[in-house]
């Protein structure tokens, strides 16, 4: 099984290596704009529990970046499947669906880790010093696991590239703005909080922010994220099986 996982992952990494400059630029541009527009321009005018808005914003951007970058593999899988027909090469090979999904999910998680490093590096010139301990990285990795699995599952279910864009617009973009990235979810009405509590990104951004600001994170995030991730991973396995026909 390992040879299949390595083959799928290695292919994605070779492509990532060829596109690295473009990918890193793409990973940097949105966070940089958010940092300038929301963080730098507002300066110390906005404070949350004694922290500047930049200190509040950077962990949120880490959560959002890990989500969008790990989910971005959906688009590549989609192109490989419908345009280049490369998915057939994997289907015709003697590897299990588990190996295929794991290889793709790991590649999504690798992209997410790169994006996080880019965001943290961008925060340095703004003079933001936060705590990036093991629980910070664990929450970020679990978050990327959830969304990389979701990417594989949805990429197998859609019937065209246009459908993929629709899914990004309706699922990922609203979550990016409402999942506790730019403002504390606690300030919303209770009914809205209850809805947003269902989103994995809300748990991820709260946990990542709590660790980064040297607070104790909510342990429920470290339960919700892996359970959600495993459920979506199983869903992705079923979707790959479904895509065979």
């Amino acid at each position: 099984m390992m040879h299949g996982i390595i083959a799928v992952y290695l292919r994605e990494m070779l492509i990532l290596k060829r596109r690295l400059k473009r990918q890193l630029s793409g990973m940097a541009i949105s966070p940089l704009l958010y940092l300038i527009a929301f963080g730098y321009a507002m300066g110390d005018a906005v404070q949350f529990n004694g922290h500047t808005y930049l200190e509040f914003l950077i962990p949120g951007l880490v959560a959002m970046g890990s989500m969008t970058q790990s989910f971005s593999i959906a688009s590549d899988i989609n192109v490989a499947r419908f345009y280049w027909c490369i998915f057939e090469e994997f289907q015709a090979a003697p590897i299990s669906n588990f190996a295929y999904v794991t290889g793709e999910v790991l590649s999504g998680m690798t992209r997410a880790l790169l994006a996080i490093i880019v965001i943290l590096a961008l925060g340095l010139p703004f003079g933001v010093v936060l705590y990036y301990g093991p629980l910070f990285w664990l929450a970020a990795i679990l978050n990327s696991f959830v969304f990389a699995s979701l990417a594989v599952a949805l990429a197998m279910l859609v019937k065209s590239h246009a459908d993929q864009s629709l899914l990004t617009n309706f699922v990922i973009t609203p979550m990016a703005f409402l999942g506790g990235t730019f403002f504390p979810v606690d300030r919303l009405p209770m009914w809205a909080q209850k809805i947003l509590f269902l989103l994995p990104l809300t748990h991820a951004s709260k946990a990542i922010r709590a660790v980064a600001l040297s607070e104790i994170p909510d342990w429920r995030a470290y339960l919700v994220l892996p359970v959600t991730g495993v459920l979506i991973f199983i869903f992705a396995l079923r979707s790959v099986k479904h895509a065979r026909d």
């Binding site: 040879h3 299949g4 390595i6 083959a7 290695l10 292919r11 070779l14 492509i15 060829r18 596109r19 090469e89 994997f90 090979a93 003697p94 590897i95």
Partner: peptide
Amino acid sequence: ELTVSENLDIHGRLF
């Protein structure tokens, strides 16, 4: 986006 030998190498790994 891969070279000729990389394409063949990935296939060999899959098998």
